[in-house]
Design a protein around this nucleic acid. Structure first.
Length: 491
RNA sequence: CGAGGCAUAGCGCAGUCCGGCUAGCGCACCUGCUUUGGGAGCAGGGGGUCGCAGGUUCAAAUCCUGCUGCCUCGACCA
């Protein structure tokens, strides 16, 4: 079918790379580590944005925009934060170019050195908290619930389209609160927003959890996360929500007067999801024939392919199909009538499968005469005939069914590849064979976590929020443990 | 940063070891005819400073030197 697409079994990584390109989602750019998001890929991202943005607004947040550049000195104000990000910052040192005196192109004008160098934001906590200092005086200014959609740059050594690029798009929420409890509630609320988005819209089941200190965001008191499992058994962190305590408030001296007229430091959160979600989406559902998109995020939900011999026949079919397109649009189904005369039906079938369109309707003169339509669903690759009369309602229902089925399939895989393990030997075996989420006891020490990572490349993805207390022994050290954590190899 | 690989038409590649005549193939593109229910066939056609800069030579995609960029795999991370 999709001849150029390697199978997942053959080489999962090649399959992913090829799929991103063949499905027209993104491309490598002239700049190392940076990607070009192509219109079809961007359309999916736009859908994600719109839905998430509505969810943020519904939970009381407003959008704003802060600068791309951050004075270098800002970054160092929070010790752990700078420690975490210093190694991967792009730095602006000059503001002007000049003609090369040796005649070739342009060079940096040494006269134009900046007095204070700027870094390109790897995240915006510092510039935002610098600003919040001016915005917050009293408890009446709180809570401050702001989100921004932006690009950020992290100078990664190794990159992959969507999963890890030097520049990526994301949203970052930054909120300020009067009490720790309220900030923690916000952190948890936004984690739940992410989890709901992942499961309901992306059809991607996730585990809600807390990061270990090792894996925590630089500058956070607690990092909450949603973790998803990809088809190759590797975990992918799909979103994070941080309780920042008073770390940034102290670093940037952001205080407020409480109702008792006492000065207090503000409590903070930040939370974000990025274009990495695109990678998660691709790897959650797609197969060896190409992309499989959940209807709620598919830019094109239904494609209609006409089958005809002569041009007059196409005209007649178009007269029949156009009203159908209109009635599908009327119920908010995004539909594409592919009447391109330069491509044949077989080519279109393969192409739209590659691009993951959930439903294809094929209509030829024969079908018009029989008053029926051929329906093909991408998730199961099945096709069959249905009466033309109630096709709109039929398609509406089928879209819902596909959305559910994709989720169910992913959920079953997650369950199937979740293992409860009590010995280190078994732990290693699973990592070497199927991969997956391994629920195991851990003694809580960073040293043990580090040792396991060294030996197996598996990291603690999270301490699941809903995991029950349970007496056990750490699989590595044998020391007592009260809870299982999730280990996996990760993207 | 380490180790590999690649750079020739829009895309994918061959040619490079062993220098030589007009730089070739597949896909895509253009024209025409036949086709159209799972990536159509035939015929004709257009498209290239062979990554960049030097050098060797009668002659360089090919040999030499230097540079640049990208990809893959590792160490770091969302």
């Amino acid at each position: 079918m999709a001849q150029n697409l390697p199978s997942r079994a053959e080489n999962y990584s090649e399959w992913y790379n090829a799929l991103v390109r063949l499905a027209d989602l993104a491309d490598h750019s002239a700049v190392r580590g940076c990607m070009i998001i192509k219109p079809y890929g961007y359309a999916i991202w736009e859908k994600m944005q719109r839905i998430l943005d509505d969810m943020f607004k519904d939970t009381g947040h407003v959008n704003a925009y802060f600068p791309l550049f951050i004075p270098k000195s800002f970054l160092s104000k929070e010790a752990e934060h700078v420690e975490g990000f210093a190694k991967e910052c792009a730095i602006v040192t000059h503001h002007r170019l000049m003609n090369d005196p040796n005649g070739k192109g342009v060079v940096v004008d040494p006269e134009a050195k900046l007095e204070e160098e700027l870094i390109v934001r790897p995240t915006s906590e510092t510039i935002i908290w610098h600003t919040y200092k001016d915005w917050i005086q009293s408890y009446r200014d709180l809570p401050l619930l702001i989100n921004q959609w932006a690009n950020v740059v992290r100078w990664e050594m190794r990159t992959r389209l969507f999963l890890r690029t030097a520049e990526f798009l994301w949203q970052e929420g930054h909120t300020a609160h009067a009490t720790a409890q309220e900030a923690i509630a916000e952190t948890e609320k936004m984690l739940e927003v992410y989890a709901t988005f992942a499961e309901k819209y992306m059809a991607m089941p996730v585990i809600r959890g807390i990061k270990t200190p090792n894996e925590r965001f630089a500058g956070a008191v607690e990092t909450y996360c949603i973790e998803a499992l990809m088809q190759d058994g590797k975990a992918l962190q799909a979103g994070t929500s941080h309780f920042l305590g008073q770390n940034f408030a102290k670093a940037f001296d952001v205080k407020f007067l409480n109702a008792q007229n006492q000065e207090e430091y503000v409590w903070a959160t930040s939370w974000g999801v990025s274009t990495r979600l695109m990678g998660a989406l691709i790897m959650s559902h797609s197969d060896d024939n190409g992309l499989v998109l959940p209807p709620l995020l598919a830019p094109i939900q239904v494609v209609i392919v006409p089958v005809y011999k002569k041009n007059e026949e196409l005209n007649a079919l178009s007269d029949y199909i156009r009203p159908l397109v209109e009635s599908l649009k009327k119920v908010n189904i995004s539909v594409r009538y592919d009447d391109d005369d330069t491509k044949r039906p077989g080519w279109k079938f393969t192409e739209w499968e590659l691009k993951g369109v959930p439903i294809r309707l094929t209509i030829g003169s024969r079908d018009v005469a029989n008053n029926e339509i051929e329906v093909y669903r991408r998730d199961t690759c099945q096709k069959w005939m249905v009466p033309a009369d109630n096709i709109v309602a039929y398609v509406e229902k089928l879209l819902v069914e596909i959305q559910n089925n994709i989720y169910q399939t992913a959920k079953e895989r997650l369950d199937k590849f979740s293992f409860y393990v009590d010995s280190y030997k078994e732990f290693q075996e699973i990592l070497e064979t199927t991969g997956g989420f391994i629920y195991a006891h851990w003694d809580g020490s960073p040293a043990t976590e580090e040792a396991i990572k060294e030996e197996t490349k598996a990291t603690i993805r999270c301490i699941p929020l809903n995991s029950p207390e349970e007496e056990g022994k750490c699989i590595y050290s044998g020391n007592p443990s009260r809870k299982r954590v999730i280990f996996a190899r990760a993207y």
